[in-house]
Design a protein around this nucleic acid. Structure first.
Length: 483
DNA sequence: TTGATTTTTTA
DNA sequence: AAAAAATCA
């Protein structure tokens, strides 16, 4: 490197695959030196957990998208794989960079890695700076009056309300400071993020477009249309009143601050209840990270240790039936098939299907957590673990009683016309509304007329809900300790 | 972010 | 008789 060339800055992209409201990016550009963007495919044994197959699909396109956006600014996205520190050091060596900037992550293993890297680089006289942006507020700055972590959602929400709005988002840069020479990059295709399993994920792109541009389009569409009546309609899986932003958030294609600020100053036609309720959902994500921050084992250990003695069943046939959407309960099967086909499941249905696995089949919530992690495009280590534990009853803010969702009444309540079931379980499409959620109660002539043979064209229920419910209640009662 | 059952209200 | 509200788990 000639002496006259200012030393470059490495901009380390992780779960912040965006140019908009990216504080690390701004800080890197503000130095005025050439900025070299890099994405590192970290080793799985680094402890950051395996990348789910559905999210790998998303990541592939997201990286391609970010790469293109950078190219428009004359920049590039350098791809490397290996242990993060080793890769960064190699790049520093190759480019003569004297600084590394990144946005913080909040999974325990990731935090540990970053802490070590920061200390090691600084010890060598390099600039190593981390920035906020993945959450609305830093978890280290949110605590109860007594100085501990929150265990219940509502007080957590109040505490965040007190903190006020997150900092206003910063727009994407219009110019880049480019180096005269670029380090080598690996090829995205060689990382084999796209699925190899035949006939899976083929419909993902009919529902999703990964990338920052699409994230902003989703947000605009939601603010223009979906958020109206959000509070009353968000629970109906056949209605377009969810934001669809979760997979974009999961990989940081859009910042929560950007979303939060988009809900400020909405017109009168969007009720206060509606946007406040939407913000509450954003804050559930925040609460999940709060829990993970204070309880690093959230995805592997019961948050409430009383559940350690729960008599989980090992039943691979039932687990498979659940995964395939062949339980014989239409709303459960519709949800599981939506997950398989589209890499997503409506929130209400996530609760119903999770409750079914845990309470009706008495299968360990960790089996469900693992399945969702692998098949959801929005798989998030905090939200996924916290939500599964919430449904199990072992998590934070779980009710003092043993909540068991009734798959029939939940279906009838939230999918009254059966539109959702008909879409994902087409073999039941011809059943009348009254029986669409309970084909096992249908008279034989109605089944015949609908072209259904139970046990053949559609499965008989794997368990009787009423009986399964009693067994689960019994097991719950006999758990040791106090609830 | 519930369910089942009992009690009360309304048609 | 059915729907809504209250209650308890």
């Amino acid at each position: 490197m000639p002496v006259s060339t200012p030393a470059a800055t490495l901009l380390w992209f992780r779960k912040d695959l965006r140019l908009d409201d990216n504080h690390a990016l701004q800080a890197a550009l503000d130095r005025g030196n050439p900025v070299i963007p890099v994405y590192i495919r970290e080793l799985e044994d680094a402890g950051t957990g395996p990348l789910g197959a559905a999210q790998a699909w998303w990541l592939h396109y997201s990286l391609a998208n970010l790469s293109k956006a950078l190219e428009k600014l004359g920049s590039r996205l350098i791809l490397r794989q290996g242990a993060a520190e080793k890769v960064l050091r190699a790049l520093i060596e190759e480019t003569g960079a004297d600084a590394v900037h990144w946005n913080r992550r909040y999974d325990p293993a990731g935090m540990a890695i970053d802490k070590e890297i920061k200390a090691a680089l600084r010890a060598d006289g390099l600039q190593a700076v981390s920035h906020a942006g993945f959450l609305l507020h830093e978890p280290s700055k949110v605590e109860t009056g007594a100085g501990g972590p929150f265990r219940v959602y509502t007080p957590f929400w109040r505490a965040l309300e007190k903190q006020g709005d997150p900092p206003p988002p910063v727009d994407a840069p219009k110019h880049w400071h480019n180096p005269t020479q670029w380090p080598k990059s690996e090829r995205l295709a060689d990382w084999h993020y796209l699925p190899t399993k035949p006939n899976w994920a083929v419909e993902f792109d009919s529902v999703w477009t990964p990338g920052e541009t699409s994230a902003h389009q989703r947000l605009k569409q939601f603010i223009d249309r979906g958020i109206r009546n959000y509070k009353s309609q968000r629970d109906f899986p056949s209605l377009p009143h969810t934001s669809g932003l979760s997979p974009h958030l999961a990989l940081g294609e859009i910042s929560p601050a950007r979303i939060w600020h988009a809900t400020i100053g909405l017109g009168d036609d969007v009720g206060t209840d509606d946007y406040v309720h939407f913000r509450k959902e954003l804050v559930w994500r925040e609460f999940s990270y709060h829990l993970l921050y204070h309880f690093p084992n959230l995805s592997s250990r019961n948050w409430n240790a009383r559940f350690d003695s729960f008599p989980w069943k090992t039943d691979s046939a039932s687990l498979t039936a659940w995964q395939r959407g062949e339980t014989g309960y239409p709303i459960v099967d519709a949800g599981m098939r939506q997950l398989w086909r589209h890499g997503v499941m409506h929130n209400r249905v996530r609760m119903i299907t999770a409750s079914f696995l845990i309470k009706d089949l008495m299968i360990d919530w960790r089996e469900g957590e693992a399945w969702f992690r692998d098949t959801l495009v929005d798989a998030d280590p905090a939200s996924n673990a916290a939500s599964w534990q919430w449904v199990a009853g072992s998590g934070a803010d779980a009710s003092p009683f043993f909540r068991i969702f009734n798959p029939i009444t939940q279906g009838e309540k939230f999918d009254p016309e059966g539109a959702y079931v008909r879409k994902f379980v087409p073999e039941l499409a011809k059943l009348p509304n009254k029986l669409i959620h309970r084909p096992f109660d249908a008279p034989s002539d109605v089944l015949t007329a609908a072209g259904i043979t139970l046990g053949k064209t559609y499965p008989k229920p794997v368990v009787d809900h009423a009986k399964a419910r009693n067994l689960a209640l019994e097991a719950f009662k006999h758990m040791g300790g106090k609830g």
